[in-house]
Simulated scan of single mutants.
Amino acid sequence: MPAAVLDALTPTAQRLVVNRRGSTVWEAESPRGHYAVKAGYPIEATADWPAQPWTALAPAREGAVLHRLGLDDLAYGEWDGGTWNYQPWHEGPDLYQLWEPCRRPDAAVQPHISVALGCVEALAELHGKGWAHGDVQPAHFIIGIERTHLIDLALARGGYVPTGYDFPFRGCLVHYEAPEIARSVLATGQAEPTQEADIYALGASLLISATGRRAVEYPDDAPRPVQREAVASGRRRDVKVPGELGALIDTMLSHEPADRPTAYEVGKALNAL
């Protein structure tokens, strides 16, 4: 954990949550409160993957975004390896974890509308402030007791971010990329996150969490460009979520951005269910 964070929080307990290429995350208990601590560093090139220097900037960029969104109980800065931030910890399972019983072969449990509504409300709150998330996926919806939290805003766009911490958006997990994002990344190497693409990603997140099936079919071991080509071409699977929730997800996954409902419209439809 970066020394600046240790000095600021003086944690009484800490737990390593994530340690992957370019990012480390801890859960930290502190006299000041309960925090998530993130440290980023650049990813070196390998035979299979190009270098990814942006991962070093992601924690500070997220900190700047959260500050612009009005969160004061946080800090961000630089360390020898890259940048860091700490922010309030949100307790609870993520969407994919919570809906695991729905994906069992003999499942008698159906996806609960109130859970989907909580996810939509969290996204609608961000959209209402003029931002697009850019990295909507099941792991980024934390289902708390009182509300659902949408986390990991390092790729969000919609307001000022300090130039020294900013970097181009080069797509996200392809499972949740909208066709127009995939096309742009294939053509230019980058794209612009939009609220319409967030809605597609939310539909894909609800679908995979409820059924275990991706929105678009491609081999599990396919290279990322091949995955994106499948998404861009619109070769989408049928939505196998029963009832009106399935019909709503199908609309959210519309190929054309203009054909997708807004977060407000999705919330209104779910409330009616």
Rank of each mutant, 00 (worst) to 15 (best):
W84L: 01
E180M: 10
L6W: 09
Y86F: 15
G267L: 04
D135K: 13
W54R: 13
W84G: 00
D106F: 13
R147W: 04
W54Q: 15
G203I: 07
G159L: 07
R183Y: 03
G70V: 06
E217C: 07
W26L: 14
D73Y: 03
V185G: 04
K129P: 02
T211S: 01
A28D: 01
V216C: 11
D80I: 06
G246W: 14
F167H: 11
F169K: 08
T262N: 09
A75E: 00
A210P: 06
Q110M: 14
T262E: 11
G158P: 00
R214G: 15
G118K: 12
E192K: 08
G212W: 12
T251H: 09
P162R: 00
T55K: 14
R224T: 15
A56P: 14
H175F: 06
A132I: 10
D221M: 11
E29G: 11
T163P: 01
H140R: 05
L6D: 03
S184M: 02
L202Q: 07
L173Y: 05
L126C: 03
R214E: 13
V115C: 07
T211V: 04
I143Y: 07
L117P: 02
P242E: 01
G82T: 03
G92V: 11
S184H: 03
D73H: 05
L202H: 06
L71R: 15
E192M: 10
L153K: 05
G159T: 05
E256M: 09
Y218H: 13
A210R: 13
Y176A: 03
V18F: 09
G40I: 06
V65G: 05
A204I: 08
I199D: 08
D7N: 14
L248V: 02
V18G: 05
V226W: 04
I151N: 00
A124F: 02
Y200Q: 08
Y160E: 12
A132E: 08
V216P: 07
D238Y: 04
P223V: 06
S233G: 13
E177K: 04
E29L: 14
I181N: 00
W54F: 13
P101A: 11
A45L: 10
A269M: 07
F167I: 04
L57D: 01
P179G: 00
V239T: 10
P53T: 10
D152S: 01
R214Y: 09
G144K: 13
R183W: 05
D238R: 14
G212F: 13
L153W: 06
P219F: 01
L123Y: 09
P261V: 09
V161Q: 05
D72M: 00
A124H: 14
L95Q: 12
R61C: 12
E29S: 15
S205K: 08
P219S: 00
G82S: 02
A197Y: 07
A222C: 12
R236A: 07
S23P: 01
S209Q: 09
L153V: 05
P31W: 12
V226T: 14
R170D: 03
A60G: 15
D94C: 14
R183M: 08
P88C: 04
A154G: 04
P2C: 06
Q52N: 15
H34E: 02
Q52Y: 01
Q190T: 10
W49A: 14
